Amino acid sequence: MSMSEVAKTIIAAKESKGLSWEEIGNAVGMSPVWTTSACMGMNSMPKETAESLCNLLGLDADICTALQKYPTKVWDQAVPTDPLVYRLYEIVGVYGETLKEVIQEKFGDGIMSAIDFSMEVEKEENPKGDRVVITMNGKFLPYKAW
């Protein structure tokens, strides 16, 4: 079963149970953002977490096994057309070089890890329109010379 099929199966089960990603993350003891990412095929789940998720959603053992496999993190390199995903892509396009400059000025020559990393998505109520707050927290990894 492909990870695309696994993701579709998980989303269908999630919807049939009327659960949110927040509820699923809490139930399996993981961050909702990380849990969603693993369900979409971008991270591998520890066995216990995969079993917990499959028990919660009533999914078969083949889904549990697929969730534990090391993913090949590939995404479409074309500009996305979904408005929300496009705006995130646009943010990186507009501010990516700026973030690189500011991070390297503060830390030196290196990168922010996407391996030793966490992300939170919060809703901030605002009378002018609710705000999306995305917090990314990654370990700084300096380049080394040899």
Rank of each mutant, 00 (worst) to 15 (best):
M1H: 09
S2Y: 01
M3R: 14
S4V: 11
E5P: 00
A7Y: 03
K8H: 09
K14V: 05
E15S: 10
E15W: 03
S16D: 15
S16E: 15
K17Y: 09
L19P: 03
W21L: 00
E22S: 07
E23S: 06
G25E: 04
G25Y: 02
S31F: 01
P32D: 14
V33P: 02
V33W: 03
V33I: 11
W34H: 04
T35V: 04
T36Y: 13
S37D: 11
A38P: 05
G41L: 02
G41Q: 02
M42A: 07
T49N: 07
A50Y: 03
L53Q: 00
N55Y: 02
N55A: 05
L56S: 04
G58C: 07
L59I: 05
A61I: 05
D62F: 08
C64Y: 00
T65P: 00
T65E: 12
A66N: 04
L67C: 03
L67I: 04
Q68G: 08
Q68R: 10
V74D: 13
V74F: 14
W75E: 11
W75Y: 12
V79F: 07
V79A: 13
P80K: 12
P80T: 06
P80W: 11
V85A: 14
Y86D: 05
R87G: 03
R87A: 13
V94Q: 14
V94K: 14
G96Y: 11
T98K: 14
L99Y: 11
E101R: 13
I103S: 04
Q104A: 05
Q104M: 08
K106S: 05
F107D: 02
F107S: 07
G110K: 09
M112Q: 12
A114K: 03
I115D: 13
D116K: 04
S118M: 05
E122Q: 13
E122V: 04
K123H: 13
E124V: 15
K128Y: 14
R131G: 01
V132E: 09
T135S: 12
M136Q: 12
M136C: 07
N137H: 07
G138R: 00
P142Y: 05
Y143E: 09
Y143A: 09
K144T: 10
K144W: 04
A145L: 11
A145S: 12
